[in-house]
Computed example of a mutant assay.
Amino acid sequence: MKLRKVTAASAAVLALSLAATACGSDKKDDDASSSSSGGSGKVKIGIKFDQPGAGLKKPDGSFAGFDVDVARYVAKELGYQPNQIDFVETKSADRESALARGDVKFIVATYSITDARKAKVDFAGPYLLAHQDLLVKADSDISKGTDLNGKKLCSVTGSTSAQNVQKSIAPKANLREYSSYSECLSGLQSGAVDALTTDDDILAGYAAQDQYKGKFKLAGLKLSNENYGIGVKKGDTATVDKINKALEKMVSDGSWQKAVTANFGPANYKNEPAPKIGAIVK
């Protein structure tokens, strides 16, 4: 009887030990799962909130645009559900700082890959090759850069786009700087300006809005090459690799072209083919 009592006691201790070990194992798995999804099960992605066709926060609080579609696709491939995505407004001047601070996991925001930026952040992609272009009225006779001589050319305050045109193509163009592209578009519609310049996908996004459909056209001048990449914190090569694989899949399964057509198609945007990962067009 004494032997059986000892054996029974030992068995009870062993059972308790196993239970405690199992609980500890569950906790470690939970912690690992939490860590892999950013600690809260969500991922924060930087986008623009004010660029129709690219990244736009709509009045109802939803988000739309090509960059938004790309961000959602990439997040899905990284293991996140739509309700686990938090979009964070990331303005151009704050993109590098937002990544360095860890405010966002990655940024999809018409973010051109340049040597100066690559010194501060890492890039996946590119995922779109855009060009600086002109947006003009549908019946405009402006078809080349030199046609802008003597014309009123609009861009936003602080942008170098209009200055580049004046410096290299049309030195007699009259620059008009407004506080937003929306103001430039209103000026173009009213005749206050003759052309608006910035990246062609951004121009197409504005022109594709319901109230402007059929009223404007892209000149198709390809004044520069803008290789859009997805910004990632410097040194986070694992995330860069995962995003690149997601982008390759997005192109191969047709989702990339579908997103281009849906967001820019109404402006007759003639997009470049999807760029190859790591192929920067100078």
Score class of each variant (00 low, 15 high):
residue 196 L to Y: 05
residue 49 F to Y: 14
residue 12 A to N: 06
residue 144 K to A: 02
residue 33 S to I: 10
residue 146 T to A: 15
residue 240 V to C: 09
residue 213 K to V: 06
residue 75 A to Y: 05
residue 81 Q to K: 14
residue 116 A to E: 14
residue 244 N to A: 10
residue 38 G to R: 00
residue 109 A to D: 09
residue 124 A to Q: 05
residue 170 A to H: 00
residue 26 D to C: 14
residue 212 Y to G: 09
residue 158 G to T: 09
residue 142 I to M: 09
residue 255 S to E: 12
residue 175 L to F: 01
residue 91 K to P: 00
residue 270 K to L: 06
residue 258 K to A: 15
residue 83 N to T: 15
residue 136 V to S: 05
residue 227 N to M: 07
residue 125 G to P: 13
residue 264 F to D: 02
residue 9 A to L: 14
residue 28 K to L: 15
residue 214 G to M: 08
residue 240 V to F: 03
residue 139 D to C: 12
residue 101 R to W: 09
residue 121 V to A: 01
residue 241 D to G: 06
residue 26 D to Q: 12
residue 178 Y to L: 08
residue 85 I to C: 03
residue 166 Q to C: 05
residue 162 A to L: 03
residue 167 K to H: 12
residue 251 V to G: 02
residue 211 Q to I: 00
residue 156 V to L: 06
residue 230 I to R: 03
residue 103 D to N: 13
residue 151 K to T: 08
residue 254 G to E: 07
residue 254 G to A: 03
residue 21 T to Y: 10
residue 27 K to I: 15
residue 82 P to V: 13
residue 219 A to D: 00
residue 256 W to M: 01
residue 2 K to C: 00
residue 91 K to R: 10
residue 118 K to C: 13
residue 152 K to F: 00
residue 125 G to R: 05
residue 182 S to L: 03
residue 215 K to Q: 13
residue 127 Y to F: 15
residue 218 L to K: 03
residue 151 K to V: 04
residue 230 I to C: 08
residue 51 Q to F: 15
residue 227 N to K: 05
residue 212 Y to D: 15
residue 171 P to I: 09
residue 84 Q to V: 10
residue 47 I to P: 05
residue 250 M to H: 05
residue 117 R to H: 11
residue 189 Q to F: 03
residue 148 L to A: 01
residue 128 L to A: 05
residue 274 A to T: 04
residue 171 P to R: 04
residue 240 V to K: 02
residue 7 T to S: 06
residue 269 Y to I: 07
residue 74 V to A: 09
residue 194 D to S: 09
residue 278 G to V: 10
residue 262 A to W: 09
residue 116 A to D: 13
residue 246 A to E: 07
residue 30 D to C: 01
residue 126 P to L: 02
